[in-house]
Simulated assay, not measured.
Amino acid sequence: MKLVATDLDGTLVRKDRTLSPRTISVFRRLEHAGVFIVLVTGRPIRWISPVYDQLGVRALTICVNGAATYDPSTDTIVHSAPLETDVLSEAVSRLRSEVPGVVFAVERDGGRQMRHEPDFPVGPWEVDHHSVGPASLAEILTRPAAKLLIRAGAQPPDEFTARVAACLSGLAEATNSSSSGMVEVSAAGVTKATALARVARTHAVAQDDVIAFGDMPNDLAMLTWAGRGVAMANAHPAVLAAAKDITDSTNEDDGVAAYLERVYNY
Rank of each mutant, 00 (worst) to 15 (best):
W47F: 12
L60W: 01
T142C: 12
L55Y: 02
N234P: 10
P144K: 09
S25D: 15
E159C: 02
D253T: 03
G56N: 06
V183T: 14
A221L: 05
V256A: 08
R58Y: 04
R143I: 01
V99W: 08
E117T: 02
R58H: 11
S136C: 08
A67D: 11
G42L: 08
M232W: 06
D86F: 02
D7T: 05
P21K: 08
A197L: 09
L39R: 04
L260Q: 08
G111Y: 07
V78E: 13
G133Y: 06
S80M: 00
S179D: 12
E261S: 10
V122E: 13
G153W: 06
S89C: 12
P217G: 02
M232T: 02
A154P: 14
I77W: 09
A258F: 00
A195K: 05
T247K: 10
T202I: 06
A238N: 14
I62F: 03
T23N: 12
G181N: 05
I150E: 05
S180R: 12
P50L: 10
V87S: 14
R143E: 15
L55A: 03
E107T: 03
T250F: 05
V239Y: 04
D253G: 01
D128H: 13
T11Y: 10
R115H: 12
L55T: 01
E90M: 10
G153M: 08
P157F: 11
T11H: 13
P121M: 11
A105M: 11
S80D: 03
W47K: 15
A258C: 02
L168D: 07
E159A: 15
N234F: 00
L83K: 06
A59L: 07
I246N: 06
T142N: 11
E84F: 00
P118A: 08
E184L: 07
S169H: 13
D219L: 02
V239T: 09
S93C: 11
L149V: 02
D219F: 00
V38D: 08
A258I: 01
F120A: 09
L12D: 05
T224L: 03
T247A: 11
M182R: 14
D119L: 15
R108H: 14
P121F: 09
T41S: 15
G56Y: 08
E84M: 03
E261Y: 01
T11D: 12
V127G: 04
Q155F: 03
I246Y: 07
I140H: 05
V92P: 13
A212N: 11
K2V: 00
Y259W: 14
V185Y: 07
V51Y: 11
D158V: 05
P217E: 01
D16T: 01
D9S: 09
N218I: 00
D109F: 09
E252G: 08
E184C: 09
S178Y: 01
V51G: 04
S249H: 15
T6W: 12
R112I: 02
N234V: 00
D53I: 00
S97L: 13
T18L: 15
D219M: 02
V127S: 05
G133K: 14
P72C: 08
M222H: 03
